[in-house]
Amino acid sequence: MNPAFALEILPQLLTGAVLTLQLVALALLLGLVLALPVALARLSPFAPVSALASGYIFVFRATPLLVQIFLIYYGLGQFEAVRESFLWPILREPFWCAILALMLNSAAYTAEIIRGGIRSVPYGQIEAARALGMSGPLLYRRVVLPLAWRQALPAYGNEMIQMVQASSLASTITLMELTGVARAIAARTFQPVEAFVIAGAIYLLLNFVLTRAVHWAERRVTHAAH
């Protein structure tokens, strides 16, 4: 380990970390937005809807993310029809392909987390809300989802950390996020260990901050409930 060299490559790696953060934040946000309807569909009493949601969750959880990314990036780009469609301005960019793959993947896991949360809501609470005249969306917005969210938060915290790590796969489709930068440095300088160890340290730091933030949020949510 050469400290001078480590210091020299640090700024480049931090630039990569910024892209990592962008990928993670956007993928998590969009994934969460998608996960909610998927979770509700999964709980739907209407069999075709619930089967569709189950199928989606199954496919994205049973295959490696790397396959999903390559399928979206190289696989879809292969077709003339896709290249001429209105989607191409999005699918043309590796950034959006990575976001799409990460988002779809995250939504599949998050939907299961939300479903678990919803199922954990005590039936008594729902009955009490019904007795107060709440129903449909209001019941969901004011009672079910807040309670489910509190239950799901620790698992969702794990999912956030998984996403930080999953974003490293964006480097395989030319994005220069943290792992991509480390790879380029390793290849150019022939000093791979430094590049990867420092990149690893930055990932640890990101996760550490994220874990703390989730703990803080958990304490706040439980506090508010009492």
Binding site: M1, V193, E194, V197, G200, A201, L204, L205, F208
Partner: peptide, 15 residues
């Protein structure tokens, strides 16, 4: 956390 990091770096340095 810092102690863990230092341990990993040391290991890498030795290798």
């Amino acid at each position: 956390f810092a102690a863990m990091l230092a341990a990993v770096m040391l290991l890498a340095a030795c290798g």
